[in-house]
Design a protein around this nucleic acid. Structure first.
Lengths: 141, 141
DNA sequence: GCATTATATATGTATATACATTCAAGTCAA
DNA sequence: TTGACTTGAATGTATATACATATATAATGC
């Protein structure tokens, strides 16, 4: 059994690891990690974002995202297209990516429901508190 | 600015990333990551644990821990000693590890206080909810 | 005793993560 | 217009993470 730690960071990391394992397992058959699924979802909602737009929206480091995008491009899930500025490139989902996301969606939804059952109504509170924390921490950084 | 995502997993990962950056930055001068600091703290409290004891207590995968311990051993922070069973080894903090942890403690405490200020009393709720989640998720796994 | 099974840990491989730095391209001021 | 500065993204390097599997040792049943 896990032990109660005084450290907020360690406790949050614990929870993130545990929930990630659950979601990754749920998505395994769909050949997507939860990170990749999240990115595909972001691409479904943000119009031709640059790496930095995604980094901002997802509170991820640009260099982290850079490598993740490369992997997903290699696997044909996304593609980069030229922007106006020759430095930047814009990212879009390929049809292959769209298909895979579509197949993954019900599994993701099932995982969401499982977590809701597991935690009860607290889940909404913890989610908004977690979001608050990200927002405030990235703001002061 | 980060975007509100419906995914519990993505939101928790976001928060874990953000808070980890804060703690890692706070501990940088002490030459410890928050992961390593957490492990040293565990070694201060658990008597000669095996890898699996630590994995259980910290809700980490045994293979993950295996690599982290190797790094910390390489850096002289911890040492392994023989157990009764020839398969297992038991882990202890070295005096070097104790020193480094001692130096890191005030920085860690400062980070804790900062987070408390940033989130207010919600922090306790999110912490216990996060712990609940780990416990329940690892129980059903 | 020996084959089978169980347990403790490590390794191969792959993604996830981020800091420091580099590289390329755009902006702007003198 | 060119040199300084800024900005967008990638790379070098290192830790963090976990699944599948391997390895070594112990326990167990016959």
């Amino acid at each position: 059994m896990p032990v109660q730690l005084p450290c907020y960071c360690a406790t949050l990391r614990q929870a993130a690891r545990a929930i990630s394992q659950k979601y990754d397992a749920a998505l395994r058959d769909s050949q997507l990690t939860i990170t990749q699924f999240t990115l595909l979802t972001a691409l479904a909602e943000i119009e031709r974002p640059r790496v930095n737009d995604l980094a901002d929206a997802l509170a991820m480091d640009q260099t982290t995202l850079s490598r993740t995008l490369r992997i997903m491009k290699r696997d044909g899930l996304i593609a980069s297209v030229a922007g106006e500025d020759r430095r930047e490139s814009r990212w879009i989902m390929t049809s292959h990516g769209q298909e895979r996301r579509k197949r993954a969606l019900p599994r993701w939804k099932a995982a969401q429901r499982d977590v809701e059952k597991l935690l009860g109504p607290d889940i909404q509170r913890i989610k908004s508190a977690a979001f608050d924390l990200s927002t405030r921490l990235t703001a002061t950084a």
